Simulated scan of single mutants.
Amino acid sequence: MILVDAHLDLAYNAINLGRDLTQTVDHGRQRSTEQTAEWIAEAGTLTTTLPEIGLHTPSIVCGTIFILPAEAQTTLDGVAYATPDEAHDQAWEQLNWYKQQCATGFLHLIDNQPALQAIQARNQSVPGLLLLMEGADGLRTPDELIEWYAAGLRWLGPAWQATRYAGGTGAPGPLTTLGLELLELMQKLGVALDASHLAEESFWQALEHFQGPISASHSNCRSLLAGANHQDRYLSDAMIKAIIERDGVIGIALYNRMLRADWDGSKNHVTLEHVVAQIEHICQLAGNTQHVALGSDLDGGFGVEMIPAEIDRWSDLPKIGKALTERGWPENDIANVLGQNWLRWFQRIV
Score class of each variant (00 low, 15 high):
140 R>M: 15
338 L>Y: 06
176 T>R: 02
8 L>E: 06
123 N>I: 10
27 H>D: 07
55 L>Q: 14
159 A>C: 12
244 I>M: 04
290 Q>S: 13
345 W>L: 15
137 D>Y: 10
306 M>W: 07
237 D>V: 01
162 A>F: 07
21 L>V: 02
333 D>I: 06
196 S>W: 07
172 P>M: 06
39 W>P: 02
39 W>G: 03
71 E>K: 12
117 Q>F: 00
58 P>R: 10
289 T>W: 15
15 I>S: 09
165 Y>R: 04
156 L>W: 08
299 D>K: 08
72 A>H: 11
29 R>G: 05
334 I>F: 04
130 L>V: 15
218 H>M: 05
194 D>N: 15
12 Y>K: 05
122 R>S: 15
162 A>V: 12
308 P>F: 10
83 T>V: 13
304 V>Q: 14
35 Q>E: 06
90 Q>L: 15
93 E>N: 04
212 G>H: 02
152 G>P: 04
166 A>V: 13
105 G>V: 13
24 T>K: 02
182 L>K: 00
22 T>S: 03
163 T>V: 14
263 W>E: 00
309 A>T: 14
278 Q>N: 15
7 H>W: 01
218 H>G: 10
124 Q>A: 14
313 R>Y: 04
153 L>T: 08
96 N>D: 09
164 R>Q: 10
304 V>W: 05
253 A>Q: 13
287 G>V: 13
148 W>V: 02
72 A>R: 13
224 L>V: 12
233 R>D: 10
105 G>T: 11
287 G>L: 14
69 P>H: 03
244 I>V: 09
18 G>K: 00
189 L>T: 08
5 D>Y: 15
53 I>T: 11
335 A>N: 15
164 R>Y: 08
174 P>H: 05
309 A>G: 08
29 R>S: 05
194 D>R: 12
104 T>F: 03
287 G>F: 12
30 Q>Y: 00
208 E>A: 09
335 A>F: 10
136 A>T: 02
37 A>L: 07
339 G>D: 11
2 I>G: 15
25 V>N: 09
256 N>F: 04
117 Q>H: 05
198 L>Y: 04
123 N>E: 13
101 Q>E: 13
283 C>K: 13
6 A>W: 01
118 A>Y: 02
9 D>N: 06
38 E>G: 06
155 W>N: 03
43 A>W: 03
251 G>Q: 10
297 D>I: 12
173 G>Q: 09
131 L>S: 14
175 L>I: 09
8 L>P: 10
158 P>F: 10
271 T>D: 07
281 H>G: 02
327 R>L: 12
92 W>D: 00
20 D>G: 08
240 I>S: 07
33 T>P: 06
170 G>H: 13
45 T>E: 14
109 L>G: 12
81 Y>N: 11
343 L>R: 08
133 M>A: 12
321 G>N: 12
39 W>M: 06
316 D>E: 07
317 L>S: 10
316 D>T: 08
114 P>F: 08
281 H>F: 03
64 T>I: 06
68 L>M: 14
14 A>H: 04
259 L>T: 07
307 I>R: 06
